[in-house]
Amino acid sequence: MLKLEDINKTYNIGTVNEAKLFADFNLTIEQGDFISVIGSNGSGKTTMLNIICGSLAIDSGRLLSNGNDISRLKEFQRAKFMGRVYQHPDMGTCPSMTILQNMALADNKGKLFGLTMGVNKKRIDFYREELSRLKLGLEDKLEVKVGSLSGGQRQAMALLMSTMTPLEYLILDEHTAALDPKTSEIIMALTDEIVREKQLTTIMVTHNLRHAAEYGNRLLMMHEGQVIMDKKGQQKTETKVDELLDIFNSISVECGN
């Protein structure tokens, strides 16, 4: 269970650009939740994820994971139990290393990076098997440098890599946004499969309303640093894309744009 308690976050404190985004923001994420988060540009979705992952410091408030205060943990320390896939495919892989080497890196997460061989030959079959789930033929290109793969192929690898070792939370920030419609569907289906299989507590930000409605057991809509809609279980299942679109339009009207 992940709890955000009375989070305050103001950008550019003490400058003319000072902008308060989160004021006493609260959110409780239950164990095993798969939350889709939607909301207009600048509503604070990425900022919320950055706060959860520790890439952004908060002004005040607390983050609790299963009751433990994790607010003081650095980003790399939280990564031990959090996996993240970014919008940009470049963020999740090492371009100058081969597919095999990238898989080996991810496989060693949380362990010692010592002076033993980077690639453990005994694991190669396992990597092949994992890669074949992507149905992109990457399992036959183990020696190819990741930098020469397409964005979609890299993103698929990023998803595999970030979920290879045991995790508690999976954080996805528009991870299908840079992909073509078909690849986007494949990655989304794979995400769902992995989340179920590993029982990950997942927060997925997306601008794809259909994905938001279709996947997950809970749906949040954010606006100006606040959660303005929170649908769970049955309520969530009954939510239709058109309905979401209507709410979207109505908040835009209220804001006068």
Binding site: F76, Y86, M91, G92, T93, P95, L105, A106, K109
Partner: peptide, 14 residues
């Protein structure tokens, strides 16, 4: 090598 390539990934690897 990862460090020079993609520092975000190093952080992701904890």
């Amino acid at each position: 090598s990862a460090c020079g390539d993609n520092k975000t990934l190093v952080t992701s690897l904890a």
